[in-house]
């Protein structure tokens, strides 16, 4: 039964970016592509040939596969309500973060492998932003570990319950932080604009300029997977134990849809920040998660 969450995340990843794109087209008054257009694009990429730069080495060839594998590995750890993930142990969220970091390491060095100034620029930015995001995630997990008294995803979410108003507040704040983390990790607005056409202002897109064919398909699809994965984590805050599957399933799907719509809305109405404002913005996340932590600390030690 522990495979449930994996299957659900794969399932939601199929239409996640579709919803985002649909939301954007509705807000901008366009007809827009269909729900499955992103998937069709990826499918076509999978079957295409590829162009490799003469500068690149085997690093460039293996990096997309490892990146994709690391995202899948992280998904293995995500639970579904009171169902643990495929792999679950004490401190699995540490492994979760570090597995993602492994993928990121490879995608960064594969960008440097091309010897392009643009891709170096993107790699530098991506490395900086992802390192700034990490503390927020760890503090967040630390606070929920403190709140529930457990140190694995499954046990934390399994014993999370909304007893008081404060814990409602904590849950909402945590969901907000995770939305922000997902936006930054997937290089979306307001930190990065995936639709920009100027290399100088890109972050993630400029890193993968030289990838093509199957590799590009893998990288693009892992973005979908990562969105669905963070969506699943957010959904877990609302899948309180004791609920039957016919409650949790709609909640899970609902949260994912709301999350996708939020992403679309943010991208429709916000402009991208100036590059040098991004770190401040990301620091804000760490401070919100510290706020959550202090809230939990007060709840546990004084109340």
């Amino acid at each position: 039964m522990s495979i449930v969450s994996f299957l659900l995340i794969i399932f939601t990843s199929l239409f996640f970016t579709g919803i985002v794109i649909r939301t954007k087209s509705i807000f901008s008054g366009r007809k827009g592509p269909g729900f499955f257009q992103p998937l069709k694009d990826i499918r076509r990429l999978f079957r295409k040939g590829a162009v490799y730069s003469k500068t690149t080495s085997f690093i460039f060839q293996i990096a997309p596969s490892i990146y994709f594998a690391s995202v899948l590995m992280a998904i293995f750890m995500v639970p579904f309500g009171n169902q643990p993930g495929i792999i679950s142990f004490q401190g699995d969220f540490i492994f979760f973060a570090y597995a993602l970091a492994l993928g990121k390491f490879f995608i960064i060095i594969s960008a440097l492998d091309t010897g392009s100034s643009f891709e170096g620029m993107g790699a530098s930015r991506e490395a900086l932003y992802s390192l700034l995001v990490e503390p927020a995630f760890f503090i967040l997990m630390g606070s929920f570990a403190l709140l529930t008294g457990h140190t694995s995803f499954y046990e934390i979410f399994g014993s999370l319950h909304f007893g008081s108003y404060i814990s409602y507040g904590e849950g909402t704040l945590a969901a907000i932080v995770l939305v922000f983390i997902a936006l930054i990790e997937n290089s979306r607005m307001p930190v990065d604009d995936p639709k920009t056409h100027l290399e100088l202002t890109m972050v993630h897109e400029v890193m993968i300029l030289d990838n093509s064919g199957f590799d590009l398909g893998l990288i693009l699809y892992s973005t979908n997977l990562k969105f669905a994965m963070y969506g699943a984590l957010i959904a877990n805050f609302f899948l309180t134990p004791g609920y039957e599957w016919y409650y949790s399933l709609p909640i899970f799907i609902g949260v994912q849809i709301v999350f996708a719509v939020i992403v679309g809305t943010v991208e429709s109405f916000m402009a991208r920040f100036r590059m040098n404002h991004n770190p401040q913005y990301i620091f804000m996340l760490t401070s919100i998660s510290l706020l959550i932590f202090i809230g939990v600390l007060i709840l546990k030690k004084f109340v």
Partner: peptide, 24 residues
């Protein structure tokens, strides 16, 4: 997992056209 995906990539792109060029 990495090996499996690497193998899949190899299988799928076996018949694809691979071109070498300079960096974009």
């Amino acid at each position: 997992l990495s090996l499996i995906i690497w193998w899949l990539r190899k299988m799928v792109t076996r018949s694809a056209v691979i071109v070498e060029s300079s960096t974009w």
